[in-house]
Design a protein around this nucleic acid. Sequence first.
RNA 1: GCGCCGCUAGCUCAAUUGGCAGAGCAUCCGGCUCUUAACCGGCAGGUUCGGGGUUCGAGUCCCUGGCGGCGCACCA
Length: 494
Amino acid sequence: MDSKLAELVAARRVKLDELRAQGIDPYPVRFAPSASLAEVRAAHAELAPGTETGVEVTVAGRLVARREHGKLTFLVLREDGVDLQLFCPRGALDQPSRALIGHLDVGDWVGARGEVLATRKGELSVRPAELTLLGKGLRPLPDKWHGLTDTEARFRQRELDLVVNPDARRVFALRARVLKALRAELDERGFTEVETPMLHPIPGGAAARPFVTHHNTLDTDLYLRIAPELYLKRLIAGGMPRVYEINRSFRNEGMSTRHNPEFTMLESYQAYADYHDVMDLTEALLQRAAREALGSLQLSYQGREVSLQGPWRRATLLELVREATGLADLDYDVEVDRVRALCEAHGVRTEPSWGVGKLVLELYEALVESTLWEPTFVIDYPVEVSPLARRHRSAPHVTERFELIVTGRELANAFSELTDPDDQRARFEAQVAARAAGDAEAMHLDESYLAAMELGMPPIGGLGVGVDRLVMLLADVASIREVVLFPTLRPERT
RNA sequence: GCGCCGCUAGCUCAAUUGGCAGAGCAUCCGGCUCUUAACCGGCAGGUUCGGGGUUCGAGUCCCUGGCGGCGCACCA
């Protein structure tokens, strides 16, 4: 261990030993506060300086500051992001507490029983008659003023980040409100929350590379799921009319400010609905999340305003690409070489196997997606890049699929689900062919899923929302690691 | 995977052209009964991310490895 850190720990261990020698348990089993620090603050707001309330409370928290003033000591407790001062004139303390107070360090968990008052300077405080050590800390806390700014340390030791950086608390409290709002909206609409497997024999429901693991007793490889989609639609086939799942999926791909290898998706499926219904649902879900997490539909993201006020723009992928390229006659039935040349003219990398649909999608991603700042439903994606989506009811080359783009980023992906088992089998076979041709992200053929489809499915509107990205938007943070408590990092090597 | 940037005391940061590795906070010792980044006095604390090289001399320059950030690539 580093010498100075060892010295700091050693100094605390000395106190630990001395406390034990005095018969004080530094790690007691239980404590019963009468109120949280927040409750004490709320119950005694605006006390005039010098007021003694006569109200006794028992509170607890982590000691985050200590100011000694001779026979008077000021301690500051922090609990769930709320601070409260302990005003500790030596004479007010009982004998054991007088012995204890000199052995307290910043970072310790401390309980206090005493009267609520406001000091002569007006600071709301508890004047303890009794102090209780609730948990001795052996390691120092980061700088009380500058906090912890080292990004790596903040992610590897998130507990420190949470102790000293109020913004970390803000983000994760907001995340919790977002999840609660999403569930509330879906529950009110009659959706049932379900949990489907994370260990999949065949990775399905998305085009992505999976993590592989192994089950010893079965002696078989399993995959961490890349999406819950196929299982959820099997539930619709089973007669559950509206289901949703909010949980982790895993993709063994590159990491970035928008990609963590494990991430949280909301997926919902409802019988009888099409993608127009799902757009309405999506708008309602995100607006509710914003209202309940922020209290407003007017956001600021990275210094730029965004309004979630509806209705949101709906534009086809083709018309967006036409706008961006200035080619009003571009369509899915033109010569593939012409579109390939267009890609090259715009610096978009292509592969010989790609058809017009894939090339148009590439143009969209290169030229359009990042420019869509206000919420926009981009609709009608090419069939060849949408193997699980229903063919459009009136346009031959596209599916009834949309992605929701906000601040240039994909937040949701949804479609009128493909429910025709024969079409699905043909789409899977095209994917299998693509895989054989070297596309590692192409889907596998899933007979269990086809069997469920052959049982008969009603019309289904399906939705997937990237919850981490939604939280990023609402919390106004630039990296997905800021909204995941313990983001994936390379293990430290020594 | 590629490119750029970063890594100095527990934390936050300095260190001129390559010339004695420093400060604030925290710790430790002493003082102080209304502080709140408390204050005053004093002591101590370093593998400058690891390894190698150039040089009389390396935190600084070169090579190499590690970890992180950002961008790109990959990617529903």
